[in-house]
Nucleic acid binder design. Structure first.
Lengths: 204, 204
DNA sequence: GTCTATATCCAGATAGAC
DNA sequence: GTCTATCTGGATATAGAC
């Protein structure tokens, strides 16, 4: 008997999913322009033309991935903010978690890298640019608020909270790029080298 | 009377120079693939075809710029290492100088961004890849050595020197990307947010 | 040295058979 | 839904006049 509408929709979604997740790494390592739709098709194992049954263009795929990247990153940031720990522990948790994701080759590094690339390029679809403009600051602000709370509690060093958040996220961004460049040769720093930005005292 | 060989060579070099410096910003903001030679020609104000009298291909221009980027960056790093200041002052000097270059829109940010992009992309000329492999570590090692000297002198916090160098340069790399993305909207952090990586105590 | 015009190639997107 | 074959546009690189 025929499949239901829901099942068909589900299969279609799964296929779109496969395309998206195959394309992330390609876009992150080569950029939008240098990634050929033939490469994406090869990565997911389908014919080139078939991609166009799921997405209307290469740029469409790209925009969808940028959307997804921000959704995940900003959701993670907001979850961190709502977590029960005291501010200092939240910052340590963020650092250790990010570093762990990075060495384990989870999505985080690819998404971060993709956003970094998309942010600087003029050669990116307008819709992606607009999204970046809207979502860009969320995670910076989350960390800055945690820092301020920690300063009030006396567990985070003094100084401009925004600046610390800026340096922290940019260090993370840089490390994600580094990981993308070096692959398995990447050696992550100890988490304390990152939290040094926030805390006095105690080395490794 | 006719120009001398030297004069002709000089004029040719100047022209090459103009092409290179026009192309840096384009490559850094759009990447190799998305930068058209027509864009470069427009930026320097010459006809598209004329570029090929000075460089044999777009990739050739790219490789030359990567070479130049490393030359400048690594020279600056080595000069820092040889400077007369004590280690702690060298690290402060590096942070303040880099941040100053970044806000003033000097070359540093573009070169840094270009190397970041070129490092992750598989879609880059083999010669550039090879150069990156050779030159990549120089500035990390310089900073790590300064950190170790500072630790010996008791002016830099304890912890793995390599990790601090890694976090420092990746924060710088991230900030350069941020500057590339935001342009004149970029607000640099206070230098102390960067040197927090190395030093205990005293916020801004 | 500099330009305009063009050959050539390659990649995105489409058509149409199965 | 999936494939192969093809159309089409655009960008690199070259040719050739001035």
């Amino acid at each position: 008997m025929a499949r239901t509408k829901q099942q068909n929709q589900r299969m279609r979604d799964d296929r779109r999913e496969a395309i998206l997740s195959g394309a992330v790494k390609l876009f992150a390592t080569r950029g939008l322009a240098a990634t050929k739709v033939a490469d994406i098709a090869a990565a997911v194992g389908m014919a080139q033309g078939l991609l166009y049954h799921y997405f209307s263009s290469k740029e469409d795929i790209f925009v969808e991935i940028v959307r997804r990247a921000f959704t995940r990153l900003n959701t993670a940031a907001r979850n961190l903010e709502r977590a029960p720990q005291p501010p200092r522990d939240k910052l340590e948790l963020a650092a250790t978690q990010i570093l762990k994701d990075l060495v384990q080759g989870e999505d985080f590094g690819w998404y971060s890298t993709l956003i970094s690339l998309a942010s600087i390029s003029d050669a990116v679809p307008a819709e992606a640019r607009a999204m970046i403009g809207r979502e860009r600051d969320v995670s910076y602000e989350v960390v800055a608020r945690i820092v301020r709370a920690g300063q009030k509690a006396g567990t985070v060093r003094s100084g401009r909270a925004e600046d610390m958040a800026l340096v922290f996220w940019n260090a993370v961004k840089g490390l994600a790029l580094q990981k993308a460049a070096l692959g398995r040769d990447f050696r992550a720093p100890h988490w304390s080298a990152l939290t040094n930005i926030f805390f006095d005292g105690g080395g490794t």
